[in-house]
């Protein structure tokens, strides 16, 4: 078991409205699992992903992640746990415009204390793996949407994380690119990483061995 959520609740207050994003959610993710999270807009998928990716902390409930029980919200502790353990793939890619493909991929490795030559070697290896070795020195603005998302996947893989969290990774891609990206993500699980993907696309969701459906902050269906 990589991460376990037990009775997690999370709400947001904006101006006069209080929104309950997660209500008493319990969930376990094991190594090598490929999990799809689906549900309508506003059901709490993204909040669940943030909590799973240790970007956010719940108002109540318990989190056991990577062998550590998190009892209170500490940004520093969350950052330390994320480092090397969690990789992120964002819907809008979130590549750094000023960095080349190689530098974008190598970025997480810098925070693990890896030397520059080793970082570069690893980045080139991943660029080749996602089919972008010819574009290694290009900047994000010079790439297509599919290529940018492949860079984002390579970046997520760079530190060999135990958990990869992908929020609508194909949301901005056409169907051909979407299929290719999903295949790539599925392949990651064979290397031992757990992959959790949020998607609106019910068809894509069928590709996963485990599907979680959410509604109004609750998990309403968890199918294997």
């Amino acid at each position: 078991m990589l991460i376990r959520l037990d009775g997690i609740s999370k709400s947001y207050t904006s101006d006069i409205v209080r929104t309950h994003a997660l209500r008493d959610v319990s969930l376990e993710i094991g190594a090598g699992e490929f999990v799809m999270v689906t549900g309508p807009s506003g059901c709490g998928k993204s909040t669940l992903m943030n909590v799973l990716g240790l970007l956010d902390f719940p108002d109540s409930g318990r989190i056991d992640a990577f062998g550590v029980t998190l009892k209170r919200h500490s940004e520093r502790e969350l950052t330390r746990l994320r480092r090397g353990n969690v990789g992120f793939i964002f819907q809008s890619f979130n590549l750094i415009d000023d960095l080349t493909v190689t530098d974008n991929i190598a970025m997480p490795l810098a925070y693990l204390g890896m030397g520059k030559p080793a970082r570069r070697r690893r980045a080139l290896e991943l660029a080749e793996h996602v089919g972008l070795s010819a574009r290694a020195s290009h900047y994000p603005a010079q790439l297509s949407g599919g290529q940018q998302q492949r860079v984002a996947i390579a970046r997520a893989l760079a530190a060999r994380p135990k958990l990869i969290v992908a929020d609508e990774p194909t949301g901005n891609l056409d169907s051909a690119n979407s299929a290719a990206i999903m295949a790539l993500l599925r392949e990651l699980t064979t290397q031992g990483s757990a992959v959790v993907v949020v998607t609106h696309d019910r068809e894509l969701a069928t590709l996963a061995e485990r599907r979680i459906s959410m509604k109004d902050g609750h998990i309403v269906d968890a199918a294997q």
Binding site: G53, T79, R80, F88, Y111, L112
Partner: peptide
Amino acid sequence: RKEVAVRKSFGARELD
């Protein structure tokens, strides 16, 4: 802001 958020997602420290 976005860049820092991405970097922090991947484990960058405050001092970094």
